[in-house]
Design a protein around this nucleic acid. Structure first.
Lengths: 233, 233
DNA sequence: AATGCTATTATGTCTAGACATAACGAGTCA
DNA sequence: TGACTCGTTATGTCTAGACATAATAGCATT
């Protein structure tokens, strides 16, 4: 008999999960109080507390003072979606990152952009087109518009070495962001840049950011077929 | 002078956040150890531990034993993605929800599924194909496999009235889930079911769920072109 | 019957101390 | 030089006990 390892809050957590899975405690049922569980497992109440709290955080159970803890009827299905820098994302895969700026121009904000970001008619924006590569293969085509009224410093940046993504992270934090993801067919230009056949299904992520109510930037990120956005709970 | 409320781990957490935001501890810097912070704030080390652990969980700092805690160089921004029931999603748009089961069969787990869910060779699964409609228009084609070893009760359910989604929510909670989103071209069958042209770009969401380490289900949800998955921070 | 107070109860959080574990570095031995 | 051992250090986790707080039920007053 080797050293009996102390029962961890993890052991308790998985045992509770098992009981919920086995319907020993069906959805809606109230599970024993912390005191009782602590006694049953022979651990301190704080240990049970941590186990049950983690279950509550992941939405499996719901807790309420005085009433106790009950198995959730409709577990909250909410995923956290990490938004890394493209560079980090590529490096995390173990691939070599490369960046190339395709074009850069100060232009009057196009109609769709003025509508989306609620910009005035006179608004000037910096329009950028860039390509991010993983091991020399196109990974993401980025088309970005930066509101020069909100971020005038962007005028002085060429974005030849550093991506607008990274530059903005350091120079223009945002307080609010809106994301949209969808599938689309690659247009002629996009197809050529991503080295895929025209009309292929591409994964498009769009992002708008604001700082203190002021629109900062809108970006369209197009990924070649096969790209997967992954997350977990 | 009213009662000095005890300093909570929340107070400590927000003070640490403030210092990081103000660059008192710039990105990459190592912050004081738990012992030191506990002394500074006049609290127990466990309290500091909880504060710092929560910061680590949200990606603001990185911890490593022995080396200490450092401010993350590239804080991972994360968005919360709500994963509602299809029915709720459709109803939230103000559209009428309709559901139809297309097929149901108990089969040996196909290879790709065995690989993904780490199922034994002998595994039996319930294979379902369903369609969810919004105002009589195809909204989502759902193809699902349920691990009968983990959820034997599914054998007794016809899924003619209630979608597997909703049934599982009530009958098999999960502790861990993995999501993947991607773009794909509609196959012949999918195209017909979704009433789109074959080869169109469809938005595919995939989900795998486990309870206490045991695989529960894998589902592929295909949305017609134009579908957008939206979220914000 | 409506209102307000109070005791009870379950969870929430904190303390002080302890041992566990990972990782690093220095010293030791072949 | 290289492999191994062992101490040091910072985080990770647990204990036992305590007080805090929210929510409820029951009692008492109007």
């Amino acid at each position: 008999m080797t050293t009996d390892r102390r029962t961890s809050f993890r052991d308790i957590k998985s045992e509770l999960e098992r009981r919920i899975a086995r319907r020993i405690w069906p959805p809606g049922a109230t599970i024993p109080g912390e005191e009782a569980l602590a006694a049953e497992f022979g651990v301190a109440r704080a240990t049970v507390n941590r186990a049950v709290q983690e279950l509550a955080r992941s939405g499996i159970v719901e807790r309420k003072r005085k009433s106790g803890t009950r198995v959730a009827l409709y577990p909250v299905r909410e995923a956290r979606l990490a938004i890394p820098l493209v560079r980090k994302e590529i490096e995390a895969k173990g691939a070599a990152y490369a960046y190339s700026r395709l074009s850069r121009a100060v232009v009057a904000a196009p109609d769709f952009l003025r509508a989306r970001l609620a910009l005035p008619d006179s608004a000037k924006v910096l329009h950028l087109r860039c390509l991010h590569l993983a091991d020399r293969t196109p990974f993401q085509f980025e088309e970005r518009w930066i509101n020069l009224d909100a971020v005038p410093e962007a005028r002085g940046e060429a974005f030849e070495e550093i991506g607008p993504n990274e530059w903005l992270v350091e120079n223009a934090p945002f307080s609010r962001a809106e994301f949209a993801f969808r599938a689309a067919r690659a247009g002629r230009d996009e197809a050529a840049l991503l080295q895929v056949v025209e009309g292929e299904a591409v994964f498009v992520a769009e992002r708008m950011t604001w700082l203190a109510g002021k629109p900062i930037t809108f970006v369209r990120m197009v990924h070649p077929p096969g790209h997967r956005m992954v997350t977990e709970i």
